[in-house]
Amino acid sequence: MHKPHVTVAAVVKKGDRFLLVKERDKFTATICYNQPAGHLELDETLAQAASRELFEETGLTLTPIGLVGIYNLHAANGIHYLRFCFLFDGAQITTEPCPKDADIMSADWHTLEDIKTLPLRSHLVLKCIEDSLNRPIQDVSFIYDDN
């Protein structure tokens, strides 16, 4: 039976900037940029997973304000990902991001125009950001969770 990898991602917006993490792609070994993102773990909701990944990769503690979208990706590495992307409001952040995860080289703010020039982990990085600007954001309660 086929089972896609369930992942979460965090679009964090502060003014006209978005928070991205710099990391080394585990499959290609190249340096790239991504939203704080990762896999859903046992006994956590999708929103909790997004907040956890955000904390691990940036040191920031935030709660998602909405669901940007659900993305079905058959990646070049042969893995099928089902990605749930959440929006976080970074307006009140006054501290610099400080990654806790040793795999994250840095976490920095970028404009949309800057992001378009960066080597991105996948095309979903830009797609999620553009969707956060151009599509209706769903309330987190849109996702039913029986936990």
Rank of each mutant, 00 (worst) to 15 (best):
E44A: 00
L82G: 00
N147M: 13
R121P: 00
Y71N: 02
L20N: 08
D25I: 12
K116P: 02
D16Y: 05
F27I: 05
V125K: 11
T95E: 14
H2F: 13
P97R: 01
E57V: 02
E44R: 06
Q48D: 12
T117W: 01
C32L: 11
T45N: 02
F55S: 07
L87V: 11
T95L: 11
R135S: 14
K116A: 14
Q92R: 14
F84W: 14
S132F: 08
L82T: 04
S141N: 10
L19S: 08
D131F: 05
L19V: 07
G59L: 03
V11T: 04
A91G: 11
V140S: 02
L46P: 01
H123T: 13
G15H: 08
L112R: 10
D43Y: 09
F142I: 05
Q48M: 08
F88S: 07
D146K: 13
V6M: 02
I65Q: 13
D25T: 10
N34C: 09
T45F: 02
L67P: 00
H5R: 11
V21K: 12
V6H: 00
L82A: 04
A76K: 11
F27V: 12
T30D: 05
I31C: 01
N147G: 12
A29M: 14
A75F: 05
F27K: 12
T30K: 15
L54Q: 06
G15R: 04
A107R: 06
A47V: 02
G38L: 04
G69S: 09
